[in-house]
Design a protein around this nucleic acid. Structure first.
Length: 468
RNA sequence: GGUGACGUAGCCAAGUGGUAAGGCAGGGGCCUGCAAAGCCCUCAUUCGGCGGUUCGACUCCGCCCGUCACCUCCA
């Protein structure tokens, strides 16, 4: 029996207990990147939210099938490829590969499927045909449009009142022939110099929203459980997806819609003109730790705006270090022979609070607070009567599960690879200390510090690790 | 103009009717030959402001101030 988890559903505007269509199996679609450049850290805030979501569901006992699309055909990819004079494929593959490198750097787990829009053209065409058959679509000058007037539920996700949408205010020059200015394009008639597919709909290419409907339903079924994205996608993208999908199938498309709030940088919206626009690569080139970036980006619950600051990044790095330090102490401290000072109840408390936080609309701040309380209890025990082998085993399991969910437990904190030279210097220093030759001992410590090796003299001997 | 969100210590942030989690930074102490790591103490009589409801409000209601988002490019 999977553990219960609640979410604030954008569609119902209520907190609901997740109840998958298939018991214990969550099918989720997560809007992915348009592969025309390097995603910025705001994009990764959302992708990291989705990563923690899938990891939490798995830890809670659900089977997860996640789909993330790669948008490789749209105005931006077309323009980018044309500007460089390369094929669309050649252009997008580069960013496609970069995206996965970034995911690896941030420790994001792979989804089950990463469909590319250009590989789903037939399914998109079939979807448009279904819509046409049901009277939801019409052709105008070679393009096919969705007829909003035919879908009464339009606006139910975003709460938008179509009467308020100012007619004619923002209409593309090439879309003025629509029956209604609010209708959106499903299939764009081919244009000079743009990629085009010959299909029963005529030569052209898919509109922006179509791929997500076709690929999500194709891989997850016509009705599925969870659909996520950034808040900016609520309207029009997700609203249009619902119209297209439900218009075609006559069935409910998605039960739970989850939207991640935006990220700000130093209190301001991230913008190239403000000079605060960062890709992951920008930050890694500054030598920042990807784990700290991950920690920062997941430490604020997803529905809260997140203010990304370098101050915050330092705090995140310190948080990671605290976890690593405790792990290292744990690894170097022999198990207690007596009763030990860490009681099983501390583990019970941690597990209950950690899970309760996550179960409450993925409250990662609460889960992290529980972790820090645990770390304090562990350190207190390490300073006191130690930790027994039995409790230690449970603790290891709890920390492993924490890492499985949050992915922020640093590796290598405990066991550094053996290095004969360093070990030799440490042995020399130990001897010097024993002889109370502190000048020599400190000299060796300084020498090692210059090589990035930090020493700690503990009651159980001198241990070392590499400085961050 | 329409719709919606938010405002908690120097910074990040939880809490959402019962008397302010957690982290970072800061101050003091313990431990150490000295460090490092860790621990302990300290750090919001108070939750944007003003009213109201209540035995009791950061939590509910009203008004005001401020910040932000979406309204067919956008995670």
């Amino acid at each position: 029996m999977p553990r219960e988890i609640r979410f604030l559903n954008t569609l119902s505007r209520r907190v609901e207990t997740l109840d998958p269509l298939e018991k214990g199996h969550v099918r989720m679609y997560t809007c992915g990147p348009t592969v025309y450049n390097f995603p910025h850290i705001g994009n990764y805030r959302t992708f990291l939210f989705e990563d923690v979501l899938r990891r939490t569901l798995k830890a809670f006992g659900y089977r997860v099938t996640q789909v993330m699309n790669l948008t490789d055909i749209d105005d931006k990819t077309i323009k980018g490829a044309a500007a460089e004079g390369v094929s669309l494929r050649e252009f997008t593959e580069r960013y496609d590969a970069a995206f996965f490198e970034d995911l690896d750097a941030l420790g994001v787990e792979r989804a089950e499927h990463y469909p590319r829009a250009t590989e789903w053209i037939p399914q998109m065409v079939a979807l448009v045909q279904r819509l046409t058959e049901r009277g939801h679509a019409y052709v105008q000058d070679g393009s096919t449009y969705f007829r909003i007037a035919s879908f009464p539920g339009y606006g139910k996700l975003s709460g938008i009142d179509l009467a308020q949408v100012r007619a004619g205010a923002r209409v593309d020059a090439d879309e003025y022939e629509k029956e209604d200015v609010r209708d959106f394009v499903l299939w764009k008639a081919s244009k000079e110099g743009e990629p085009s597919w010959d299909t029963p709909l005529g030569p052209g290419r898919p509109g922006w929203h179509l791929e997500c409907s076709a690929m999500s339903m194709g891989l997850l079924g016509e009705s599925f459980d969870v659909h996520t994205g950034g808040v900016d996608n609520i309207f029009p993208h997700h609203e249009n997806e619902i119209a297209q999908s439900e218009g075609a199938t006559g069935r409910p498309f998605v039960h739970t819609w989850l939207h991640a709030e935006h990220l700000f940088v130093e209190g301001q919206k991230m913008a190239k003109s403000l000079g605060n626009f960062y890709t992951l690569r920008d930050l890694l080139e500054k030598g920042l730790d990807p784990l700290a970036i991950r920690y920062l980006l997941i430490s604020v619950p997803y529905r809260q705006k997140l203010n990304f600051t370098f101050d915050g990044l330092h705090a995140a790095a310190a948080g990671i270090e605290r976890i690593g330090n405790t792990l290292r102490r744990l690894a170097h401290t022999p198990a207690a022979t007596g009763e030990g000072s860490l009681h099983a109840s501390a583990l019970d408390e941690f597990e209950a609070e950690f899970d309760a936080g996550l179960a409450d609309d993925l409250n990662t701040a609460r889960a992290l607070a529980a972790l820090h309380n645990l770390l304090t209890a562990v350190n207190q025990a390490l300073d006191g009567g130690g930790i027994t082998a039995a409790v230690g085993a449970r603790l290891d399991a709890a920390l492993a599960r924490t890492d499985a969910v949050l992915g922020i437990v640093p590796t290598g904190g405990a066991a550094e690879s053996a290095d004969a030279e360093i070990e030799g210097l440490i042995a020399a220093r130990v001897a010097a200390r024993k002889a109370r030759d502190f000048a020599r001992a400190d000299g060796i410590r300084k020498q090692l510090a210059e090589r990035g090796v930090v020493l700690e003299d503990t009651p159980h001997g001198t241990v070392w690790h590499r400085a961050k």
